[in-house]
Each structure stands twice: as structure tokens, then as C-alpha cells.
Amino acid sequence: MAKPANDLPVGLLTLQGDYAKHEAAFRALGCATAGVRRPADLDRVRCLVIPGGESTTLSRLIDSAGLREPLCAFALQRPVMGTCAGLIMLAGELAGEVPDAHGVRTLGLLDCTVRRNAYGRQVDSFTAPIRFDSFVTGDDPFPAVFIRAPRIERVGPDVEVVATHGGAPVAVRQGRLLGLSFHPELTDDLRLHQAFLDLV
């Protein structure tokens, strides 16, 4: 890599989902972004966001684009944030599903177990104020938007629970990996995007 990593743009996995919302958030923080749809695109970004979307679709598109192994290699070197479906893709395993029943193959990077759609159908979507101790700046709770969200049911010993809601972890961190059950990109609050940049 010719350029020092921190001069590179923030990478967004642009296969499917609400990547444009993440792009807007990083732009608002003064950061350039670049889309990732091919393995070679990973050489040109300093970190990566796997956005919200449909996990079954993302799982297939990651495989058909030949991105599975390159994404795993990238995550050993650089920070990766997954929101909602992105968290599902980062997770170690899925609860309550026969492996491959719906054909979702996670990347197995973040040592946790998640249950897809565990917060209910679309009509059960909600916004809840979430407390983050020191991970984000300021004392105000974060307005977390949950849409057909995955629930984190188990975390491994190396995983730090950064925030909880209703007794379940909703934000977890393992080194450079950050997984969120909700969608910070659907609010105007940029503190989590800033916190992710601070990991970089």
C-alpha cells in the first residue's frame, strides 16, 4: 500500500443496504468515503463499514463477489463496524437456526451469538435512548433505532459489552471490531461514527 493508511477514505461495503446513510454521516464528519464491491477495493480504504440491509442478500453477494476471504483478512488488520445486518455478518454464530437454513453464512469474526429478527417484525420497530459510558462523548443517551433487529445472546471472553438495552448487549467491541444491533446511520447523532473513527 503506497499511501499511509490514515490518508485513505472510509470504506463502505456497497453491495446492498443503507450504505448511503453511512456515507452521509462520515461526510458530515469531514471524512471521504469509498465503496467496496470487489476484493481490490479493500486496498484503498482505511477501515470498513458493513451497513444495514438484508443479511441473506449480503451473505450471497459477499460470496459471489469473492469477498469472503478478503474481508476476513482485512478485519485482522483494520477496523470494521457492522450495523444490524452488518453485525449479523460479523458474528461468530446465529442462534436458533440450522446452519445454512436460510443460507446466511456469517464471517465469524466477532465472538458472539446473534438471533436474527429477534426484536420482531417491522411493526415492532422502535427507537430507544441508550446509555454509553465512556465510549461516546457527552452524557446524552444515544437514540438507537431498531428495525427488525438482531439480538446479541452471547458474547465471548474477549468481547467488551459497550452498551445494553433491556438486559441484552446492543453494542459490542472486540479490538478493532464494532458490532451494533441498531442503526446509528438513521439518526443525526454522529457520536458512534466518530467513536468508530477513533478506533482507526
Binding site: G17, D18, K21, G53, E54, T57, C84, A85, Q122, S125
Partner: peptide, 10 residues
């Protein structure tokens, strides 16, 4: 609108 956003690019 949040769910509609999730369905983009598909």
C-alpha cells in the same frame, strides 16, 4: 423509511 433504506441496492 428506515426499512425502505435497508432494501436499497436490491
Amino acid at each position: 423509511v428506515g426499512l425502505a433504506e435497508m432494501l436499497k441496492g436490491g
